[in-house]
């Protein structure tokens, strides 16, 4: 079973590489935001998978945190883009 997890994880990483390229290449800031946001969501699943790979499934709290963090960061970035300020 762990092989399946492992393959999934590797696919996720490969996807992350592609997204990273997009984040760097742009061409607009929105591409960067999009790509980083997508990497963020991938990490959420990834951290869950890691729990399964290591056989410690009880740490899914981590994934929740990841999700929230990604969300808030994205909101902050967008507010910066839209309003030019954070407060």
């Amino acid at each position: 079973m762990s092989t399946v997890y492992l393959i999934t994880a590797v696919v996720l990483i490969v996807g992350a590489f592609m997204l990273l390229y997009r984040a760097l290449a742009g061409p607009t800031v929105y591409d960067t935001i999009l790509a980083t946001n997508a990497i963020g969501t991938k990490t959420i699943v990834f951290v869950t998978l890691l729990g399964y790979i290591s056989g410690r499934t009880e740490f899914i709290d981590m994934a929740i945190i990841y999700a929230l963090i990604t969300f808030i960061t994205t909101i902050a970035i967008l507010k910066y883009i839209e309003k030019g300020r954070l407060d």
Partner: peptide, 19 residues
């Protein structure tokens, strides 16, 4: 871009540490 990549970097690093 550097700033938001820092966020990604941290998330990835966090993955490394979960691993």
């Amino acid at each position: 871009a550097s700033s938001i990549l820092t966020g990604i970097y941290s998330l990835l690093m966090a993955l490394v540490w979960v691993n």
